[in-house]
């Protein structure tokens, strides 16, 4: 069942029929979540209305990390089973994950301005997210550099898995670095413990973001499948030209 679904042709069919209901679900969830987040949830007694940024910030952070996990899983698929759809899934996930990491960073610094009076503080969590963003950029750069998709997928898989092993180490060392410098800067991004009135909209928004990420991933994969088909057609065209003979042969053709 799964192997059939993973064939590119079958994938293009089921993803096309899945996308419209999924889009509707995403829109409904996002509408509900935004209503809860903007209208129902009370402003924070300390942070005021700015607390609402969290309803975008936290799901974006969650998705930035999930997409890395998705890429790492697909990378295993590429390396172990050499499945072309694993390559496609990896390639489609990278820009989406990078975009969510960027959203997380931007909302984090927008939140920081009223809270700390500056757009950026080298807080442990934000800094870890910045490094995750940089790793995403490296992966995107590697995709761009290698023209052949299969070779590129192999190279990127190795980089992704090395990154996956390193991310906990990076996270740990950044935390350690931050506590080392506590004296210099005592600001922390984490607010007080989460109140239930905030938790519900946050969860709805997290589910809405996840659906949105899923939609984007499917769209990205479809685009990548089509892009590969275009590339293969161009290669076939070049090969066909090689076999076709020149229309107007000169007298030399016979003698040479």
């Amino acid at each position: 069942m799964l192997t059939t679904m993973a064939r590119p042709g079958a994938f293009m069919r089921w993803s096309r029929s899945l996308l419209p209901p999924l889009c509707l679900l995403t829109a409904a969830l996002a509408g509900w979540g935004l209503y809860l987040a903007l209208m129902v949830a009370p402003p924070d007694y300390q942070q005021g209305e700015t607390v609402r940024i969290m309803f975008v910030h936290v799901p974006a952070a969650w998705l930035a990390m999930s997409f890395y996990m998705l890429m790492a899983a697909s990378a295993l698929g590429t390396l172990i089973w050499r499945h072309p759809m694993a390559d496609v899934s990896q390639k489609a996930a990278a820009p989406i994950g990078a975009a969510f990491a960027l959203i997380c960073l931007v909302t984090g610094s927008l939140w920081g301005k009223p809270m700390w009076g500056t757009y950026w503080v080298w807080d442990a969590r934000l800094t870890s997210m910045l490094i995750l963003f940089l790793i995403y950029l490296g992966i995107l750069a590697l995709w761009r550099t290698i023209e052949d998709p299969a070779t590129g997928a192999r190279a990127v898989s190795i980089l992704t898995l090395v990154g996956a092993v390193n991310i906990p180490i990076i996270k740990f060392s950044v935390d350690w670095w931050f506590t080392l410098h506590q004296g210099a800067s005592v600001l922390r991004l984490s607010g007080p413990t989460i109140h239930p009135s905030i938790l519900q909209p946050l969860l709805v928004m997290a589910v809405a973001f996840t659906c949105f990420g899923f939609v984007l991933h499917l769209l990205g994969m479809r685009t990548e499948v089509l892009r590969r088909r275009v590339r293969r057609l161009a290669l076939l065209e070049a090969e066909r030209l090689d076999r076709a003979s020149v229309p107007n042969l000169s007298p030399y053709a016979a003698s040479a």
């Binding site: 080298w122 910045l130 940089l134 490296g138 750069a141 931050f178 080392l180 410098h181 800067s185």
Partner: peptide, 22 residues
Amino acid sequence: GLGLVFFLMVVTLIPFALGPDL
């Protein structure tokens, strides 16, 4: 765009060496 990414990386690395003192 690669030069820009490298630029961002160098800018990011220096605070790790210096500490996050704004």
